[in-house]
Amino acid sequence: MPLDIAIAQFRPSKGDLDATLDDCAEAILRAVGQEPRPRLVVFPETALTGYFLEGGVREQAIAAPELLEALNARVGGEADGGDADGVDIAIGFYERDARGIYNSALYATLGPGGGILHVHRKVFLATYGVFQEERFVEAGAGIRAFDGPPGRIALLICEDGFHSVSGTLAALDGASIILILSASPARGAAPGAGVPGNLVRWDALASAIAAEHGVFVVVSQLVGFEGGKGFAGGSAAYDPRGHRLMAGPLWEEALLPVRVDLDEAARARAEEPLFSDLERSWTRLLVNSPGSGVRRPVPEGE
C-alpha cells in the first residue's frame, strides 16, 4: 500500500521554543494541505531547538507528552476535525525525563485519537571534533522497531545511522522503513560531488542500509547555520534496493513529498535474501562474537 511521506527539511529558530513550535505546526499544516496528503511528516534531529545548544539543553529540553500536547494545540488537534488529525509525525528534540536529558525522536499520531507511539533516544552520541553530545545528554538504551499505522517503523538519529549495527537491529526487529533524523554539520568541499562531503557520506550510508536489509530509508536533514556550522539540508529517501528516490535542496527549507510502497520491501528481500541470511545467522554470530562470554575453540583454518 502506498505511503505518502513529507520530509520537513526544517530550520529551527534557535533557542526559541515557542516560535519553533509555531513553525513546526505551520509546516505540518502546509504538508497536510498538499496533494497527495501525507500520512507522515518527518522532521530532522533537534528540529525543536537547533542542534548546538551546549548547556542550553537544560533550558530547552521538554518531555515527549508536553511536545505532543504543544503541537496538537497548534494544529487544532485537541478537538475532532483538526486539519492534521490522524497524521503521524516524527520529530527530533531534546527530551527531559526524570532520569536525564536525551537527544530523542518522537513518533506520534496527531489529533484526539492519536498519541505517542514511540520515543527513540539516540544511542551513539557524537562526541568528537565539533560534537560534544556526551557532555550534555545521556545515551539511549537500545534500538527497537514499533508498529505504526503505516507499518513497522524504526527511528534512528544521526550517528546511530553511521553504525551498521543500528540498521541491522532495526531490520531484525521487523522494520520495513527506517526514519533517520539527522543534524549533520556540512564539512568538506572537495571538487566532484557538488555537495558537502558529509552528504556524500550520508548518501552512501543510507543507500547501504536500505540495500542490505531490504528496507526503505528516509533521511531528514536539518538546515540553517549555527555559530558558523552550516546544516546543508540535502534530505533524501531510498528504496529497498538502495536506489535514491529523491533528494532535497541544499541550504533551504523544503517540504519534500515522497511516496513509498512498503510491500516493496518484501519483494526486494525475495530477490536478494540478504535479510533472511542475516536472521538465520544472527544468534549464532552473537554467541560466537567477542564479548559474548562464550569461548569455543576455533577450528584450524577458520
Partner: peptide
Amino acid sequence: DIDTDLVRSWLVQFLREEIERR
C-alpha cells in the same frame, strides 16, 4: 582543491544567516 561553486553558495548562505537571521 575546492569546489568553488559549492563554497561560494555555502558562504553566501552563511553570511545571510549569520548576519540577518541570527
